[in-house]
């Protein structure tokens, strides 16, 4: 009874292909994962964010060179700390985040599940959706990825870093479902 649609599995990567939604209303019943390219994009993003961490060993190193009062051990300690944090941000967190992210869209609801330490599962009745956008920053664009942003009257939700065609699919699917659900009532 549960069927997975071919176009949402990983095989679907042909950009620019259009889709006909007729007869597709009973679509995805299973949770989808994000494309593995999203990990790469997050790694780039997180390495940019972890640059400020290196200000600390940089400052200590500056003191070490120009002011002998700082011992080399402190410098080493800060460098190791910075390496550890950077590794955490750049390698571990994107991996966990990717593993935890799951989403499901059907004619009734949008079901999101994500979180690194705190796992959140969010349900949004499709009828409540006011608008859906796709958004793309420079990093996501370089990997041909895009976020889908879903807004209700009170909240906004994001399915991050989907491949461009999937993002477009999901967006138009949600808006079709939303329109249909509203017509039903």
């Amino acid at each position: 009874m549960r069927e997975k649609l071919i176009w949402l599995t990983n095989g679907f990567h042909s950009p620019g292909s259009t889709f006909d939604f007729k007869g597709m209303i009973n679509s995805q019943k299973e949770q989808q994962t994000l494309p593995s390219a999203s990990k790469k994009a997050w790694r780039i993003n997180n390495s940019l964010w972890s640059l400020p961490i290196w200000l600390v060993p940089g400052y200590v190193g500056f003191l070490y060179v120009f002011n002998a009062e700082v011992s080399i051990w402190i410098l080493l300690l800060t460098v190791i700390g910075a390496i550890f944090l950077t590794a955490l941000f750049v390698f571990l967190l994107p991996e966990i985040r990717w593993k935890r992210w799951k989403y499901r869209v059907d004619e009734h609801e949008i079901d999101l599940e994500h979180g690194i330490f705190i796992i959140r599962r969010t349900l949004i009745p499709v009828k409540r959706v006011q608008h859906v956008d796709t958004r793309q920053g420079p990093i996501l664009r370089s990997y041909n990825l895009g976020d889908v942003v879903i807004s209700t009257a009170a909240t906004t939700h994001k399915i991050p870093a989907l491949s461009e065609p999937t993002a477009d699919q999901v967006r138009s699917e949600i808006s079709t479902f939303a329109r249909k659900a509203k017509d039903d009532v």
Binding site: I119, R120, T122, L123, I124, R128, T155
Partner: peptide, 16 residues
């Protein structure tokens, strides 16, 4: 029910 915009559950490691 038809006024609910979204619902969410949250689990942190201790709660898990």
């Amino acid at each position: 029910k038809h006024r609910i915009q979204s619902a969410e559950t949250k689990v942190n490691p201790f709660q898990r």
